[in-house]
Design a binder for these strands. Structure first.
Length: 623
DNA sequence: GCAAGGTC
């Protein structure tokens, strides 16, 4: 990309204030002049001179930010009221762009700046949403200054080399990605509003007890509900099966050693009896193999948002939403890095030392941090994901946030960070194999030699089970050899941690929104939380089950409750980004599909109603 | 009274 004609004044706009601050710190080399923007306490404008080679004279740089997306979209007055039009009209109704109240001073600020700058340099996150936000910013700046040029800074980490490089080698804003996001915004608004109104009004008419309740549809909330219902129905349909196995135990050196059958277990009773009787007839066990091998337990990967919510909700017994909220607060206070990231690998130039240094003062893990500084440090493992915008979540300063959610989250993130900078736990595993009447059994023991990361990461367990020495060819008659039976057990209901993982795998929602979608289906009373001991399980309400079964029954090969449609939208967005499809064509194709769903649903609506009646007669309460 | 996606 050729460098732009030499600009005199460059206006840099980031996606959020924290990034603007970092860019100004790096490019301004700490000398930037800071003035707060009028009307909003979040946004600051930074100015400083900056050299853009090959020109010898520095130009003036101004760095500012917006707060994510700038524009709001909604239907006009003639469609906004629920009874102002039939819901179907929402598929083709005019959509208007407007500024939300909070964004007015933000836009006033960039427009004012745009007037006396000749180049707009977009510094939003380098993802699809970032390109879209960039396009919104450009639109407003062009209104204020039609002649302003626009380019995009491309960076993959907030480190000086990258930021300077991005400033000096800008590229074009990717309008195709922006168009793809446009598609999503419009499609989700139309389908969400149309189907929500259809569904709500029809169900309220049939069930007076649903009066005043919104029965919302959304392309993310419905698949989320679908996963919960699927697991519930799976459990309902589960039939336990009996199985048999030979249990062998041996007393040795005051220990009871359990040996596991190589066949694990059999579902065939007759066959189990035959094999068992052979063991009873010649009960002498012979040791066939004793093997000791080094083994290790791997330290955890760097922390992404999804992983923080998944393992956090399992270990801290908090909801994914509460975890993200606490992380957000800690981030705003400057204690944690940006909490919404898909990245589980650190940039190769990432400087760990000063961050570890800050943790030395802690009463609980300070000693561990000190040991890392004294030579125990080992670079974190690299995961497979990189959003090219944010590093993994890590503590940026030491704090003791008092009791409560923030303390739990801060401690978890910090221990995880220190653990990832430490070394794998080392141990040795001993396996012993024996034979009784030609049937094989085995057992194993573990000795932990070096705990390493486990010392700072109590969430992981790796316990040694000591087994006494056995020698090959040694023989003994086991103290216990019995034929036992058991039953297969149904899977358990989904936990929030499970659901986060399933949504992530299926591309439902993003790191920043997954927790919200779960909270939404709970708020809508499609799903209920069931506390069992320390764990919260998710179970569908009668309403939730009826919705899923009803929509499935209407007989779409692609039910609204399955992740398929969302995946298709994602795929089509990618086609737009790649320049393969035009937004206009994709929009038409998608809307046609949803219109068909809508018409069919309206026609066969009584099927959903029937299922609902049926389900609510089985379970008396609707909730 | 509708969605999902940014960010605070």
């Amino acid at each position: 990309m050729p460098i732009h004609p030499h600009p005199r004044r460059v206006l840099c706009v980031a996606e959020k204030p924290s990034i603007a601050k970092e860019i100004a710190r790096i490019l301004g080399e700490g000398q930037a002049n800071m003035t707060p923007a009028a009307g909003t306490k979040y946004i600051k404008n930074y100015t400083f001179p900056y050299k853009l080679p090959p020109h010898p004279q520095p130009v003036q740089f101004t760095v500012t930010a917006v707060l994510g997306h700038v524009n709001d979209r909604d239907f006009g007055d003639e469609h906004r009221k629920w009874h102002s039009c039939p819901p179907f009209a929402l598929f083709d109704a005019e959509i208007y762009e407007s500024l939300s109240k909070d964004n007015k001073p933000v836009v006033t600020n960039i427009k004012r700046l745009a007037r006396d700058h000749d180049l707009l340099l977009i510094w939003t996150d380098c993802d699809r949403e970032g390109e879209h936000i960039g396009a919104e910013v450009l639109g407003h700046c062009r209104q204020a200054n039609p002649r302003i040029n626009c380019l995009r800074a491309k960076f993959s980490a907030i480190i000086p080399a990258q930021i300077h490089n991005a400033a000096r080698n800008p590229i074009a804003l990717d309008m195709l990605s922006a168009a793809a996001v446009d598609l999503r915004i419009e499609l989700d608004l139309r389908t969400g509003a149309a189907i929500t109104r259809l569904q709500t009004m029809a169900l309220q008419a049939a069930f007076p007890e649903l009066d005043k309740k919104v029965i919302s549809y959304g392309p993310c909330q419905f698949p989320t509900l679908g996963f919960v219902v699927a697991r519930y129905l799976h459990i309902q349909a589960f039939a336990a099966e009996e199985f048999w196995f030979i249990a062998v135990q041996q007393e040795k050196d005051d220990n009871t050693i359990e040996f596991n059958w190589r066949r694990n277990h059999l579902f065939d009773f007759e066959a189990s009896v035959v094999l068992y009787e052979q063991c009873v007839e010649s009960p002498l066990a012979t040791v066939t193999k004793v093997e000791t091998k080094p083994s290790k337990k791997w330290k955890p990967y760097p922390l992404t948002t999804v992983e923080m919510q998944k393992s956090g909700s399992r270990l801290l017994h908090m909801s994914p939403k509460a975890i993200l909220d606490a992380a957000e607060k800690l981030y705003q206070k400057g204690f944690l890095s940006y909490p919404r990231t898909e990245t589980d690998q650190y940039d190769k130039d990432f400087d760990f030392k000063p961050l570890i240094e800050k943790q030395i003062q802690d009463n609980n893990w300070g000693g561990f941090a000190q040991a890392l500084q004294n030579g125990e440090f080992q670079r974190p493992r690299n995961g497979k994901k990189n959003d090219k915008a944010h590093p993994p979540i890590h503590p940026t300063a030491w704090t003791n946030p008092g009791p409560g959610d923030e303390k739990k989250v801060y401690e978890f993130v910090t221990r995880r960070f220190l653990a990832s900078c430490s070394q794998d736990a080392q141990g040795k595993t001993t396996t012993v194999e024996i034979e009784i009447a030609e049937e094989e059994f085995h057992t194993s023991g573990l000795v932990v030699l070096q705990r390493n990361y486990l010392d700072v990461y109590p969430y992981d367990r790796w316990n040694g089970t000591l087994i006494p020495d056995f020698v090959v060819d040694e023989t003994f008659v086991p103290s216990v050899c019995e034929l036992k039976s058991g039953f297969t057990t149904a899977p358990s209901l989904l936990t929030e941690a499970d659901l986060v993982g399933i949504m992530d795998q299926n591309g439902i929602g993003t790191d920043a929104t997954i927790a919200e979608h779960i909270a939404t289906v709970v708020k809508r009373e499609y799903v209920m939380e069931q506390q069992q001991g320390n764990t919260k399980y998710l179970t569908p309400s009668t309403l939730g089950i009826a919705l899923v079964e009803g929509w499935d029954l209407i007989g779409f090969d692609r039910s609204l409750c399955k992740p398929h449609l969302r995946r298709e939208t994602e795929h089509r967005m990618q086609l737009i980004c790649d320049g393969v499809s035009l937004k206009r064509d994709v929009m038409e194709e998608s809307l046609t599909q949803y219109k068909e769903v809508f018409i069919k649903a309206k026609r066969e609506w009584d099927k959903i109603i029937q299922v609902s009646r049926l389900t609510s007669s089985v379970v008396p309460s609707l909730y």
